[in-house]
Simulated assay, not measured.
Amino acid sequence: MTIYIFPIFPLHRTGNLTSVSEFFLLGLSDDPELQPLLWVLFLAMYLVTMLGNLLIIFTVTSDSHLHNPMYFFLSNLSLADIGFASTTVPKMIVNILTHSRVISYAGCLTQMSIFILFGCMDCLLLTVMAYDRFVAICHPLHYMVIMNPRLCCFLVLVSFFLSLLDSQVHNLIVLQLTYFKNVDISNFFCEPSQLLKLACSDTFTNNIVTNILIYFIGAIFGGFPFTGILFSYTCIVSSILRVPSTGGKYKPFSTCGCHLAIMCLFYGRGIGVHLSSTVSSSPRDSAVASVMYTVVTPMLNPFVYSLRNRDIKRVMWGLFSKTT
């Protein structure tokens, strides 16, 4: 598909329009002195993200005591975090190393599609994990019957296919945008909102319809999972508060502590990014804020689970003892 913009980068001219097959990722900073520091920082964070999430997956699969729904969903969340971070960070590391900011139009759409796929899957898996904790605490006697292996696999598959649907809908919307005011993306990856800001629709009405459709899709794939999580934890807290003993209250709270911490990291930073992009007029501020939920959150997830979960720490320590 050929994309046309007003003449900024003359690659292939057609009348008074310019055919463009590339975008330019402006990144976080133009300062040449900061580039080596950014390269080392992002490479270190990416390696920690990969090693931490792979360690969670290996720990869960290596011990039969962790073969239960909670850790099954956790290992899938780690897989989604690996894909989420791998969509954006390696490209930025390569761009800094090669002093290149170019990304092809097809590569930009592919990156955006995979980014939405794993980002939406993170949201849906957190919702599934909230439902799992709801069943475990509010209906403990029926937990193993309700959360059987077939249902667990079904919930993960549904999360994947709904995320795939979300990413393809965004792709179809962007493919309908035939004119762009600029090709400079003020971020280190092809963020959907940035592409929409650069787009120049044929008519004002088409522009309004596109924005309404984007917000509607965001409300479905972001708002409904968040509402489901709030409902699950409202029921969980209500059930825990009815427990008479203090010890009986502590155990369920400690069990849900890891999941609550991950949710606060993911949704808190995501909402903060959108608020900062709305309040702040600087595109670079939005790019810096994007680092928090695209890089920092996937990196912190394994630490939260490994430090706050006794079962994970026990198995990790056992594996470490065997290897040494």
Results as ranks from 00 to 15, higher is better:
162 L>G: 06
169 V>D: 03
218 G>T: 03
63 D>I: 09
171 N>V: 15
191 E>D: 14
270 G>N: 03
299 M>F: 12
128 V>T: 08
199 A>N: 00
220 I>Y: 05
30 D>T: 11
68 N>E: 12
124 L>V: 03
189 F>E: 01
263 M>T: 09
205 T>A: 15
122 D>V: 15
145 V>Q: 10
309 N>H: 05
241 L>F: 04
135 V>M: 10
313 K>C: 13
214 I>S: 11
227 T>N: 08
28 L>Q: 10
110 T>A: 11
8 I>K: 07
256 C>S: 14
283 P>Y: 13
174 V>M: 14
323 T>K: 13
54 L>T: 02
105 Y>F: 12
282 S>N: 15
234 T>G: 15
246 T>D: 04
24 F>K: 12
295 V>P: 01
217 I>C: 05
66 L>M: 12
212 I>Q: 03
152 C>Q: 09
64 S>C: 08
100 S>R: 05
263 M>E: 05
82 I>K: 00
152 C>K: 04
115 F>D: 04
147 M>N: 09
273 V>K: 01
168 Q>P: 00
259 H>F: 11
215 Y>I: 04
172 L>A: 06
204 F>H: 10
266 F>H: 05
24 F>P: 03
129 M>S: 14
206 N>S: 12
74 L>S: 03
158 V>K: 00
121 M>E: 14
85 A>L: 03
321 S>P: 01
61 T>E: 14
172 L>F: 10
69 P>A: 09
232 S>L: 12
294 T>F: 12
180 F>R: 02
315 V>E: 02
126 L>Q: 10
252 P>H: 09
241 L>N: 11
17 L>A: 00
219 A>W: 04
202 D>P: 02
323 T>Q: 10
137 I>D: 05
179 Y>H: 12
109 L>C: 06
27 G>W: 03
251 K>C: 10
246 T>Q: 06
12 H>N: 06
286 S>G: 14
164 L>K: 00
244 P>V: 13
279 V>P: 02
248 G>Q: 06
166 D>M: 14
188 F>W: 14
107 G>M: 07
241 L>G: 07
121 M>N: 10
282 S>C: 15
160 F>I: 13
160 F>N: 04
155 L>P: 03
112 M>T: 07
241 L>I: 03
200 C>K: 09
235 C>L: 10
27 G>T: 06
96 I>Q: 02
181 K>I: 14
132 D>V: 13
38 L>S: 07
120 C>Q: 05
252 P>D: 08
41 L>S: 11
196 L>Q: 13
265 L>D: 01
317 W>P: 01
103 I>V: 15
216 F>N: 00
180 F>T: 05
79 L>N: 04
242 R>D: 07
122 D>G: 15
322 K>R: 10
113 S>P: 01
116 I>E: 02
165 L>I: 06
169 V>M: 13
246 T>H: 04
211 N>S: 13
270 G>M: 06
317 W>R: 12
28 L>D: 07
121 M>Q: 15
293 Y>F: 14
187 N>F: 09
225 P>V: 08
250 Y>S: 13
